[in-house]
Design a protein around this nucleic acid. Sequence first.
DNA 1: CTGAAAGCGCTAACAC
DNA 2: GTGTTAGCGCTTTCAG
Lengths: 342, 342
Amino acid sequence: MRDATLRDVAELAGVSARTVSNVVNGYAPVTEPTRVKVEKAIKELGYRPNVLARNLANGRSGQIAVVVPFLDVPYFSELLQAIIPRARERGYHVLIDQTDGDAAHERELIRRGARAALFDGMIYSPLGLAQEDLAESDPTFPLVLLGERSSNAFFDHVGIDDVEASRAATAHLIGLGRRRIAAIGDQPYPTGEAAQLRTLGYRQAHADAGLPVDESLIIQTLRFNRADGAAAMRALLDRDDPPDAVFGYNDTVALGALHEVLERGLRVPEDIALIGYDDIEEGRYANPPISTISPDKDAIATTAVERLLMRIDSKEPLPGIEVRASHRLIARQSTVGRAAPA
Amino acid sequence: MRDATLRDVAELAGVSARTVSNVVNGYAPVTEPTRVKVEKAIKELGYRPNVLARNLANGRSGQIAVVVPFLDVPYFSELLQAIIPRARERGYHVLIDQTDGDAAHERELIRRGARAALFDGMIYSPLGLAQEDLAESDPTFPLVLLGERSSNAFFDHVGIDDVEASRAATAHLIGLGRRRIAAIGDQPYPTGEAAQLRTLGYRQAHADAGLPVDESLIIQTLRFNRADGAAAMRALLDRDDPPDAVFGYNDTVALGALHEVLERGLRVPEDIALIGYDDIEEGRYANPPISTISPDKDAIATTAVERLLMRIDSKEPLPGIEVRASHRLIARQSTVGRAAPA
DNA sequence: CTGAAAGCGCTAACAC
DNA sequence: GTGTTAGCGCTTTCAG
């Protein structure tokens, strides 16, 4: 049997479509008796509004897209886990896409998606796209960018203070007496901004302590995964002058490095201390548990959704703002050893 | 400026809407000259079909929903990572939702989602829902269930042979000479079917080897996460007769257990051997790397999408089939120790 | 407070 | 081949 439509309900209740619509959406005030009549008809027919039609009529899709480079990177799935309920609270469904860091795909998403009416706005964690690409895109499209970046006048950015966090992570290592600290995850190309900020923090910490930076200890990786971390560590350990500490630009990289260190029979943190970035659950259960920079993921998720909906609802384009969520350093066994409190 | 519509294009090209639609969708044969004219007009106006309108018109949303209990469980995100591209290849977008194992929410999704026209079908990894709940739902709704389950006449199931895989995992431990093998992750309640199948395999392996099962070694957990695994292990190690091996019902549970074992200063696998289930990347980089049952995730993803689209395209309801993807046991250091090949 | 009716942008019979 | 046109199901202006 065909699904019941608004019109069917109206007919059964003996009112007009307009009234049914009002009841369903709680719009205009409706007299109690008609409300009851309509609701009875709705129940009787098992009526459910067709979202598609509703969206077509009012030009909204009721969906927001969240685009991340890789879904299986724990940081992103943990963030998504926080974003989805926030969006749902506000009546939005979340369309998820992963780009594998493919710039063409990312550009395509931004450009087409909006016009296609598939989603009303987008929360986007860029990887392949450089600032210039973004500048070209339609400034009226509701877009919130994840991660700190050099400012862009049109879109919002939500992230933590990468330079400061990285400085703190490095300083933590320096404070522990380490002097040959490797940094794994630098990315020199235009799309590696987040990585570059971390490198900046790493340098600052050295400068603050009056220590020189051994450029050969700054290792570049293409992605931010376990395999890259392990490969970088392998190279580092094969050198005549291996490092005595490692700052991984995210936890996954740090965990890959940790794996390699232990594989070689070295001790953590005695021989090599390790700190990561992101505070994914996996790091808490690693052996040993790794120290890390813990961004306030809930705040990031909440703010990103908030800002996006604000942009969607706003008639005129809002200026882009920069939101900094808080973060803190969590020292675990991988830097301070067994004695330390978890 | 208002976005260009089909009608605008038709006007500019001097043809009817019908023709433009034909060109856009490549439906009916169109003469070369008109095709060119229309395409030129499309380009000139920057026309993009409005997906919403198209969907409303032909009653399809072009979206499929993938519903998992928890997004931050690596197994699910790895699976999603495989599903998304498969769906995209077939022209579908993926709407992701997580239920937190909340039965009410899961039921709601199945019931409303379809009628709401938000998605054309659903790939669903049940957790809170029991078979009875599913039986009540509309059998014409295109639905593919993830994970092995006792058969249901209406829907497809895609998974690996849980009993056999669990038997193999347990037998692996027995073959290594272990005799007090704990099983962590049993779930006795109606919605814990997958867990129960694993327990069955665990028992079978013991029966095959002529070994008795110590019921007190079968530990129940509410969820399948690291914390649960760690808690279960803690209890196990506090006993006078701790186990000499552990079969974790998934890798996360096993990793939680591993963490606890090492925390106590015990050696793996010498004191306690550990095997997990799912083969998530995290397990390969754990210290030591954990042995596991590796399901063919790509096959699962591909089959699930395939079957779902088949159901969506089919006019009459298809009978439910049971698809078994392959799996294999991967022995790593957590059971066979250092000497073994990775 | 409620009814009538005009779309939202596209698809697909039904003609020509 | 291509034009005409009636919907898809809902929202919403404009009357009343």
